[in-house]
Simulated assay, not measured.
Amino acid sequence: MRIIEPYVTLESKITQKEALDLIESAGRVCYKSEDKINGDSAEKFIKGILSRGHESVIEHVSITVRVVCDRGVTHEIVRHRIASYSQESTRYCNYTSDKFSKEITVIRPIFWNKGSSQFNAWQKGMEECEKAYFSLINAGASPQEARSVLPNSLKTEIFITMNFREWRHFFSLRCSKAAHPQMQQIANMIFDLFKEKYPLFIQDIMVD
């Protein structure tokens, strides 16, 4: 069994400037003000749109992120319905195969320190899940049958595509301290990507 940390990567190649230009072109149709487009107009125009709550305009650009986390977190992520998802499937992935180094991989919980009694109990539970999974596969069960004993902490990989408006909604809910700690951990990682690559679209969002 392998224990890893969660991580996220930005898969979209569109720059903030390209996103701004496309959204400005779409937004100015509303006012038929295309004649006002120039090299510096997009940022001011979209800041104004966001300040007025006209967020439907920013739906014209979608951003894709790859997330490696545990399956418990993805159960929460996919509740955001205005999105597209592609996720590692426990129906078809056989973790006893060489492709997976003949072991399951689990995500370390953020809320327990290694060596604590809670962490030790969790690790023992994960090891028992792995033993049960391997026993079922060796007894002739298919991966989709044996997955019944796999834990919420199982590592999974998911591609997430949302438009800018939905990402703003996602951050407002999932970066909050009211969110599950591991969900908040992932949301903050993605938020940091947006702060680096698309700061204008989230600059007014306060996170805990």
Rank of each mutant, 00 (worst) to 15 (best):
G53V: 14
S176Q: 07
C93I: 13
Y85A: 09
A42Q: 02
W112D: 08
I158H: 08
F100A: 00
T64G: 02
V57A: 15
A121P: 00
Q16E: 15
K44W: 09
S89P: 11
R168Q: 13
P143K: 08
P109S: 10
Y133F: 10
K155C: 04
R108I: 10
L193H: 08
C129D: 01
T105L: 03
C93L: 10
E145W: 09
Q144I: 13
E76L: 11
E43R: 11
N120D: 15
W122I: 09
N38T: 07
N120C: 07
L154H: 10
G125S: 13
Y85D: 03
L22G: 01
M1H: 14
T156M: 06
A141D: 02
E59F: 04
I186R: 00
Y85L: 12
F111M: 13
T105C: 06
R52P: 00
D192E: 14
K197E: 13
N188A: 09
Q87S: 12
A42Y: 03
S116I: 01
E196F: 13
T96Q: 11
F134L: 08
I49E: 01
Q87P: 08
L173I: 15
V8I: 11
A19G: 00
L50E: 05
K197D: 04
K124P: 00
E11L: 15
G48K: 04
M162N: 03
S25R: 13
H60P: 02
Q16N: 10
E157M: 11
R168I: 04
Y95P: 01
I58L: 12
L150Y: 05
D40N: 14
V8S: 02
A83V: 06
S41L: 08
P143H: 06
A146G: 07
R66T: 09
E5A: 07
W167P: 04
A121C: 05
F164T: 00
Q182F: 10
P109I: 12
F170D: 02
E55H: 10
W167L: 08
